[in-house]
């Protein structure tokens, strides 16, 4: 196969525009902080060297009540105030939408922040794919009349619950399942790249049985756990953050950690954090 421009020299100028163009990485160098979305806490931002990167998919994995949803809600409220100044698209598959927790996080002085959180429920994988197509339309043709900030943050909470049902453990179903992972991830990455969005996906954990090689394994609440959906899904995200918790101590207060399991731009490292009434915050080692 020849490039299109070579076979049609007569209208090569119109074809030339369709040719893939090499980008100069120098021009992609982020204009300081605008390309990272702050988590709203300097210690956590330092862990992620500035925040969550745009044009990339970040997974937040952790067991239930580890602070995944809380972190998402916090991001949704930080996004309009951050240098990125964006609305947020919150796709949730865990019903119902945690509205009460969101309202608890909104500062009294800024009830308008809720205007910038767009919520949609995804009940199945096909729901999610059609929602993403509609999101793509929304992002390409922004509706100026609504006076809304552009959407540059997409949250999906959580990917694992979409796959809890509908799939048997047969090889054919497993193959269908992993093909769906890659399709969803490709769609998310395309949105992230074309519109410079921050994409955050939360994931649950499963207990590690023997033979679960290759995937991230962590200790949390005294269990050996690994993010759900297996190795296939691990290939679908750019950055994986793991929220873990130490086994409950005698006084009932346990330490929580946020760990960078893998990331193209960060070394593996961790930091402690605490969930307070007003959000998720990092804890300096000396403070504890």
């Amino acid at each position: 196969m020849r490039p299109a421009a070579a076979t049609h020299p007569s209208n090569s100028s119109s074809h030339r525009q369709q040719e893939p163009r090499a980008a100069n990485p120098l021009l992609l160098l982020p204009s300081s902080r605008a390309a990272k979305l702050s988590l709203g806490c300097p210690i956590l931002d330092r862990l992620l060297s500035g925040g969550l990167p745009a044009a990339s998919v970040t997974e937040i994995a952790g067991e239930s009540a580890s602070g995944k949803t809380q972190l998402c809600l916090q991001l949704a409220l930080v996004a309009p105030l951050s240098p990125m100044s964006s609305s947020c698209l919150f796709l949730h598959s865990d019903l119902p939408f945690p509205l009460r927790r969101l309202r608890g996080l909104v500062p009294q002085s800024r009830p308008d922040l809720l205007d910038h959180v767009l919520v949609a429920a995804a009940h199945s994988t096909s729901d999610l794919l059609s929602l993403l197509s509609r999101a793509q339309h929304l992002l390409t043709h922004p509706n100026d009349s609504l006076r809304r900030l552009p959407i540059r943050l997409i949250l999906l909470d959580s990917i694992a619950s979409l796959f809890r049902a509908d799939f048997d453990a047969t090889p054919a179903d497993l193959r269908r399942r992993s093909a769906l992972f890659f399709r969803i991830s490709a769609k998310l990455k395309e949105l992230a790249h074309r519109h410079q969005c921050v994409v955050v996906v939360t994931n649950q954990v499963v207990d590690v049985v023997e033979g679960e090689a290759g995937n991230t394994v962590e200790w949390s609440s005294g269990r050996r756990v690994s993010p759900a959906l297996g190795l296939a899904w691990a290939n679908c995200v750019n950055t994986r953050l793991f929220l873990t918790r130490d086994a409950d101590g005698p006084n009932g207060c346990s330490r929580r950690r946020m760990k960078v399991a893998f990331a193209p731009h960060l070394p593996e490292r961790a930091c402690e954090f605490a969930i307070r009434r007003d959000g998720v915050f990092g804890v300096e080692p000396s403070e504890r």
Partner: peptide
């Protein structure tokens, strides 16, 4: 950085197209 030619691919058709275009 300036001497790295970077292509971002969003689908397998684009991937095939870029590899075909590489020759040129």
């Amino acid at each position: 950085l300036a001497d790295i030619y970077y292509f971002r691919i969003c689908s397998y058709t684009e991937q095939i197209a870029v590899i075909n275009y590489l020759e040129k």
